[in-house]
């Protein structure tokens, strides 16, 4: 019996457009703004539906049929706007392309967004580790972005967060960020 080969896509949902534009003095730093938490209405079912519809729109019935058997949202964290999607290895590019062509979350949320695939991995463990690493890095970055003007970012990120905001650690993380994705 040959084992089923899967790919786990770690995705970030980014929000580039300002939902409620405020005056620039009190606005959040861009880093925080782009990686804001998703609404609680976004559930795993909703995300699955979005992906399935996206694949169907881009690749038609063929693509939808190919992907349907293996497509599962394994993990979704609205707080960090992160999700892990499982899909058969043979067709992960279809799902990835459909995610790339997404511009809006489905109906009850209906927020314009950009989905970025940050890691393609063969095991869910690696995807998980990457998710934790990235969440930590983005907190550090947000802290640094807010460092100068001292907005209420501390409260937004849950008070005393992870690690200290020193530059060294963040720099190594930036270095890893640009490496190749696992094939």
């Amino acid at each position: 019996m040959v084992r089923l080969k899967n790919r786990y896509l770690l995705i970030n949902i980014l929000y580039p457009s300002d939902a409620n534009p405020t005056n620039p003095a009190t606005a959040l730093p861009d880093v925080v703004q782009f990686r804001q938490p998703s609404s609680d209405a976004l559930t795993a079912q909703l995300l699955t539906r979005m992906v399935r519809e996206g694949v169907a729109e881009l690749f038609g019935d063929y693509g939808a049929g190919m992907v349907a058997g293996s497509l599962v949202v394994k993990y979704l964290s609205p707080a960090t706007s992160t999700a892990i999607i499982r899909v058969a290895r043979a067709h992960y590019r279809l799902v990835w392309a459909a995610l790339t062509c997404t511009t809006q979350l489905p109906r009850p949320v209906a927020q314009s967004c950009v989905v970025q695939v940050v890691r393609v991995s063969g095991t869910i463990r690696k995807a998980e580790e990457e998710a934790i690493r990235r969440a930590r890095a983005s907190v550090l970055r947000a802290r640094r972005a807010a460092g100068g003007d001292g907005l209420g970012v501390e409260a937004l990120l849950g008070g005393e967060g992870v690690g200290t905001g020193d530059g060294g650690e963040d720099k190594t993380m930036e270095g890893i960020e640009s490496e190749d994705e696992e094939e």
Binding site: T100, S112, V114, V115, Q116, V117
Partner: peptide
Amino acid sequence: LGCRGPWD
């Protein structure tokens, strides 16, 4: 909204 990540 039209921008995508390099790997995408």
